[in-house]
Design a protein around this nucleic acid. Structure first.
Length: 646
DNA sequence: GAGCACTGC
């Protein structure tokens, strides 16, 4: 029986194939469903699965929170119940569900967390992985754990775990191969044609793309109907603000005006929301965006896309353990995704600010996140799920051996895992088991763990929560911000400075000022309120885990040495010694690496003999971010033991 | 004295 289609929802391409889909899902333990944006798969497939009437919940995962929540609301409407009843959602810090919830929308990271407690995912009969083509780190790791869970449940004669993978029509063979040649079913999409135009004259010229993009904007503005909004893809905040300023200048001389809107994640929420408002009468909306507009935000009214062909990408290099952030060429798949943003509501146009030959030279698809990330958290999670032999890990695309070794080395150094007597297997240590419970990078879990015995857990929780959030201090020229910065600054380093700023925020919040007043206060102080509220939630979650794991939660009061000792325990691999001759720092574990303190640090102008930092990033130079002064003796033992093992 | 793309637990 085909599910009932309510008359108050618009017809979808998927409606014509409901019965075939139900058959496919019923007949195969794993299947791949391909469909372009707008075909209705994210709302309809879970309902089709529900009609199979199997016991257990149906989970459908999304890479982003907002998508999980809004899809749950839409489908609740369709089945005529309130969110949290038949259809619910679960994301970090927020959930709506009850005993009788059948369909659960959730982030893939959330399901992965659940898998740490129950590797067999027994409460679910069907798990649908949506947007699998995005290949987020969480999606890829989840696919691996699902494959394991399905096999183990089968081997133990338990209820079958049905897996449905949903993806756009790219690299489908990867998913199919990974799941024993699972059948692929294609749903036709409903998108509008987008005309693609190349800048052939720019063949091979990558030198001044920003200037070329500016010209393309002006050209499009001159030629295209004024009612068509323009979405421009650039790489980062700095060039977006620069281009915005130039366009506003040029505007003075134009008869048809442009309304320019910058758009990037670090932008204040209120300013982000401006892109959804209509432009002033008679003006054309021009949105200058990072790739936040590629998937996370859809802006209505866009009919013209201008694509720089560039993206800023972070890549982890295993040999030296350094994250590199740099501007790179996008892939063909990414170019298609960007162009597609012009055809959401009607036909559109995409100006590519590069030649068709340059396009041909692009990679077919982008390098998946799992191939360019530090894998220590992933490996720790898998080991805590019961995996003993990390050589047996088979991800959908396998990171190279250096990446795996680097993760193993880091985890051993932190005391989270150790070799078995035979040397073939890895054992989770007692510490490691607790570390895996915290949703933070392993070095930071180690900081938390160490803080328990060093009697400074309250402080460590705050610092780790802040390190898991956005940048705390905003760049601000206002005097009031400089005053605040000076007030909270500590000669002990950035971590204690963050702690002081957080204390200031808590004091202000206790005055019970309204949210509006709090925002005004934060702006005045040059503090990022979004970071502070997020850190507050993270801190609460971490504190609950710490309590549950039986850790001692105490405050060190004014004795911040204890906090810096705890930081040293988790971050000892990032300990540095000052080199007078080079006027730079050398990593104790890799003395040939020269590091500088990032100019945003409170220690940028001082030269303490020994430091630890929480992040190393190569941009124009190799910079240590979030730096604390330490005593060499605090890291001595850990360093020498690490060297011995090597 | 330089700027951190984007998600997520």
């Amino acid at each position: 029986m085909a599910p009932q289609v309510h008359s108050d929802r618009l017809s979808l391409p998927i409606d014509d194939v409901q019965e075939q889909l139900q058959e496919i899902v019923a007949d195969s333990d794993t299947c791949i469903i391909l469909g372009e944006t707008g075909c209705g798969k994210s709302t309809q497939i879970p309902q089709i699965c529900m009609n199979l009437n199997r016991p257990g919940q149906i989970a459908i995962t999304q890479p982003r929170r907002v998508a999980a929540m809004s899809l749950a609301m839409r489908v609740s409407d369709e089945v005529r119940s309130e969110v949290g009843e038949k259809v619910g959602y679960r994301v970090r810090f927020d959930a709506k569900s009850c005993e009788s919830t059948r369909i659960m929308y959730m982030t893939d990271g959330m399901l992965l967390r659940e898998a740490i407690n129950d590797g067999l995912l027994q409460k679910y009969s069907v798990i649908i992985v949506d947007e699998a083509h995005e290949r987020s780190l969480h999606t890829d790791v989840l696919l691996y754990t699902l494959r394991l869970a399905q096999r183990q449940r089968r081997a133990q004669g338990m209820d079958e775990l049905k897996i449905v993978i949903m993806s756009a029509t790219m690299n489908a063979h990867l998913f199919s191969t990974y799941f024993d040649n699972a059948p692929i079913y294609l749903i036709k999409g409903r998108t509008f044609p987008v005309e693609v135009l190349y800048a052939e004259a720019l063949d091979g010229d990558g030198s001044d793309y920003l200037y070329n993009v500016l010209i393309a904007i002006l050209q499009a503005h001159e030629q295209e109907p004024i009612s068509d909004d323009i979405l421009v893809f650039l790489t980062g905040r700095e060039e977006i603000e620069l281009t915005a300023a130039k366009l506003r200048d040029l505007n003075e001389k134009l008869s048809n005006k442009m309304a320019v809107y910058p758009l990037y994640a670090a932008l204040k929420t209120a300013q982000q929301q401006k892109v959804f408002e209509p432009a002033p009468e008679g003006e054309r909306k021009v949105i200058l965006s990072t790739n936040i507009a590629e998937t996370s935000l859809t802006i209505p009214g866009v009919r013209i896309v201008i694509d720089s062909g560039k993206v800023k990408l972070k890549t982890f290099t295993a040999v030296d353990g350094i994250d590199v952030l740099r501007v790179e060429r996008i892939s063909k798949a990414q170019a298609a995704q960007r162009a597609g943003r012009a055809g959401r509501e009607s036909s559109g146009k995409c100006y590519r600010v590069y030649s068709s030959k340059d396009y041909e030279r692009m990679k077919q698809s982008s390098i998946a996140e799992i191939l360019r990330s530090n894998l220590s958290a992933v490996i720790l999670e898998l080991i805590s799920m019961g995996l003993k032999n990390i050589k047996s890990i088979k991800l959908i695309e396998q990171p190279n051996q250096e990446m795996m070794d680097s993760a193993e080395r880091q985890l051993k150094g932190l005391g989270a895992v150790r070799d078995s007597k035979s040397g073939k297997k890895l054992h989770l240590t007692e510490q490691g088991a607790i570390m895996a419970k915290f949703p933070v990078e392993p070095p930071l879990s180690k900081v938390l763990l160490s803080s328990s015995s060093l009697q400074c857990c309250e402080e460590a929780l705050t610092v780790v929560a802040l390190l898991s959030s956005e940048e705390l201090f905003l760049q601000s020229d206002e005097d009031s911000a400089t005053v605040t910065r000076r007030k909270v600054s500590s000669t002990e380093g950035d971590h204690v400075t963050m702690l002081n700023a957080y204390a200031l925020y808590k004091m202000e919040k206790n005055k019970k000022t309204s949210n509006k007043q709090l925002a005004a206060w934060a702006h005045e102080c040059g503090l990022n309120l979004r970071a502070l509220t997020h850190a507050t939630k993270v801190r609460k979650q971490l504190r609950e885990i710490a309590a549950k794991e039986g850790m001692t939660i105490q405050s060190c009061g004014a004795d911040r040495d204890k906090l810096r000792k705890a930081l040293s325990c988790g971050l000892f691999m990032n300990a540095c010694e000052y080199d007078n001759q080079k006027d730079a720092y050398r990593l104790l574990l890799s003395p040939s690496t020269l590091v500088r303190i990032h100019p945003s640090s409170v220690l940028a102008r001082s030269r303490p003999a020994y430091i630890v930092f929480s992040q190393l990033l190569r941009t124009t130079d190799l910079y240590a971010k979030d730096v604390s002064v330490i005593d060499r003796s605090w890291v001595e033992t850990a360093i020498s033991e690490f060297k011995k093992r090597k």
